[in-house]
Design a protein around this nucleic acid. Structure first.
Length: 584
RNA sequence: GGGGAUGUAGCUCAAUUGGUUAGAGCACCGGCCUGUCACGCCGGAGGUUGCGGGUUCGAGCCCCGUCAUCCUCGCCA
């Protein structure tokens, strides 16, 4: 085998006259009948190889038979390109390799798509091993590598130990649907793949491991999205003898290291913080994109005074009238565009969208005639609106106005280019509610997870008004994406049992499902808390991408299938028998 | 579970209002060419228009169903 002495990305004028061997894939061939050029590609780059007739007929003919994506080894001499023939687009553009020997390792079938061309995603996923040859995919995989390495290095510097936890665990109530693995040895019993290493990491704290981290694979059997896969990766972290502030401060050290590595920017800490309730009120979401303003404005008091029935009725029913002011958007959105925005708001439950174009004297729009000059003036002042602005108003429940306006704000922010898409904004959203109410199941559900510690100042409400209790919970939000989330854990058995009761878990059920953790918490559990970063989403952010499949080497489709391997697939009857499984 | 988009040559796309033999570029095969780097030139091969049914004198185009992929609401502590 012609074994390489250098990569295809490193030869320069420094190597002139040296005899070297390169290995790689044929990226392009240019056959002039006499002289033949090959661009040879490996992970490091491209190098031009020249085959000249003077080197012999046999080599010449071999070179002329080369095709794209063949895998070859070439021996030759590094020489300077002819004057004026340098290629400044290549790192190696000053030189070329004058070939003396060629070995074909593998002649390829015609690839189903061109490696440096475009192909639809379905085909790319079916032939992922070819798709991953593309330099863009190499760039992403390298970012992923650097992210993991920066995390490992920084966590180690901060005194954390990397510890592995089981993949085969047990199914616990609460949270997402589990992926189940049937037990062969125990008929009718199942393992569950972890939704996160949550319980194990708390046990590690009880075990005195003090500071733990893991780059952990997590599994959730829920429907997929552009930024959601059934298996994904988290940087999972837990620390002992800490309070709320300690976790945030420590994690800011990590965030600073990441920012330094990926954007070169030195973040100033502490990072901005936003209360959950304030975020919901000002932005309608618990993960606002703070790279631009356009905050949600409450119009309830003004709406009640108008002659517009929709507004009046909404307020009389105790609901909300809120809106946003899109700067300079009045001219940019046609009637058709506004219909599209109305339908878009409808996706989030809004039954309508009131739009008003702000002109020098008055508002225009179908609803303008219901608003007196006084009300219009008050709106204008409340929004800080200027002529040319577009007001978008939703009248509905708090939840619907939040969801619809937050989505509109996000969409318009992007369409109106209110921020630099390459910029980064980091902030904490803190003090989430401990519970929310699940109307379908008629019970409280944990907003984060069942082992979260309430805020000390809200403890007196835990019995009487659980929905008003806030948790010691925190999310790291980057550019409107939830990049990380965590809590201080409950290590007080009395509080924990009250929480279980609200969740509809009897002491017996709690013991049955979480006995091992409850037991551990009674055996000398230190105050502890932690957080988990969504590694895939962070790769997306730093790679500038908006699709999670692009940052996972072998991802699943939106229906959860793997187009390359065909998973999930059927199995032999014998396998099912061994697992004591009969198909319905 | 609901809503929406897409599906034509190996790839990326085109095909007027339903009308002749479904085209182009790239890739592939053959030929020519000694300085290209998206090499160029000449020639060739390549099609179940996702699949099934229907309407029609006639369907890539219209209708019904179905499959796949994507986006999205619900869902995702």
């Amino acid at each position: 085998m012609l074994k390489r002495t250098h990569s295809c990305g490193e030869l320069t004028a420094e190597h002139l006259g040296r005899e070297v061997v390169l290995n790689g894939w044929v990226n392009a061939y240019r056959d002039f009948g006499g002289v033949v050029f090959i661009d040879l590609r490996d992970r490091a780059g491209l190098t031009q190889v020249v085959f000249e007739p003077e080197a012999g007929t046999q080599l010449q003919e071999a070179a002329q038979s080369l095709r794209n994506e063949w895998v070859i080894g070439v021996r030759g001499t590094v020489r300077r390109r002819l004057p004026g023939k340098e290629n400044p687009k290549l790192q190696t553009g000053e030189i070329e390799l004058q070939a003396t020997e060629l070995e074909v390792f593998n002649a390829t079938q015609t690839p189903p798509f061109e490696i440096d061309g475009e192909a639809n995603e379905e085909l790319r996923l079916k032939y992922r091993f070819l798709d991953l040859r593309r330099p863009e995919m190499h760039r992403i995989v390298e970012i992923r590598h650097r992210l993991a390495q920066t995390m490992r290095r920084t966590m180690t510097e901060l005194g954390f130990w990397e510890v592995e936890t089981p993949i085969l665990g047990r199914s616990t109530p609460e949270g997402a649907r589990d992926f189940l693995v049937p037990s062969r040895i125990h008929p009718g019993h199942f393992y569950a793949l972890p939704q996160s290493p949550q319980l194990y990491k708390q046990l590690l704290m009880v075990a005195g491991m003090d500071r733990y981290f893991q780059i952990a694979r997590c599994f959730r059997d829920e429907d997929l999205r552009a930024n959601r896969q059934p298996e994904f990766t988290q940087l999972d972290i837990e620390m002992s003898f800490v309070q709320f502030e300690d976790v945030l401060a420590t994690m800011e050290g990590l965030v600073k290291a990441l920012s330094r590595e990926f954007t070169g920017e030195e973040l100033s800490t502490p990072l901005p913080r936003l209360d959950y309730h304030e975020a919901m009120e000002r932005f309608g979401t618990d993960r606002p994109d703070l790279r631009f303003g356009m905050e949600l404005i409450d119009l309830g008091d003004l709406a009640a005074q108008t002659e517009f029935k929709v507004f009046k009725d909404t307020i009389e029913h105790g609901r909300r009238v809120r809106g946003i002011c899109a700067p300079g958007a009045a001219e940019k959105y046609s009637r058709k565009d506004l219909d599209a925005l109305t339908s878009f708001a409808g996706d989030y439950g809004a039954k309508g969208l009131v739009w008003l174009k702000v002109e020098a004297e008055q508002f225009t729009g179908p609803t303008a005639k219901f608003l007196s000059p006084e009300v219009q003036a008050a709106f204008r002042e409340r929004f800080g609106a200027k002529p040319g602005d577009l007001l978008l108003i939703v009248a509905d429940t708090k939840d619907v106005t939040s969801a619809a306006l937050s989505a509109l704000r996000h969409r318009l922010g992007r369409e109106l280019k209110l921020y630099d898409p390459k910029s980064f904004h980091y902030s904490w959203v803190v003090r989430f509610p401990l519970f929310s109410w699940d109307a379908e199941e008629g019970r409280y559900v944990a907003e984060h997870h069942p082992f979260t510690m309430p805020l000390p100042e809200d403890l007196h409400l835990l019995e009487s008004e659980p929905l008003k209790v806030r948790a010691q919970a925190y999310d790291l939000v980057i550019n409107g994406e939830e990049a990380a989330g965590g809590t201080i854990r409950c290590h007080d058995p009395a509080i924990q049992s009250t929480i279980f009761r609200h969740l509809g878990l009897s002491p017996e059920e709690a013991e049955e499902k979480f006995g091992f953790l409850l037991s551990a918490l009674r055996f000398g559990a230190p105050p502890h808390g932690g957080i988990a970063f969504g590694l895939d989403r962070m790769v997306m952010l730093y790679a500038g991408l908006d699709n999670i499949r692009d940052v996972i080497p072998f991802p699943k489709t939106a229906k959860g299938t793997d187009l390359m391997t065909g998973a999930p697939g059927t199995v032999e009857e014998k396998q099912l028998r061994e697992l004591h499984i009969r198909q319905r």
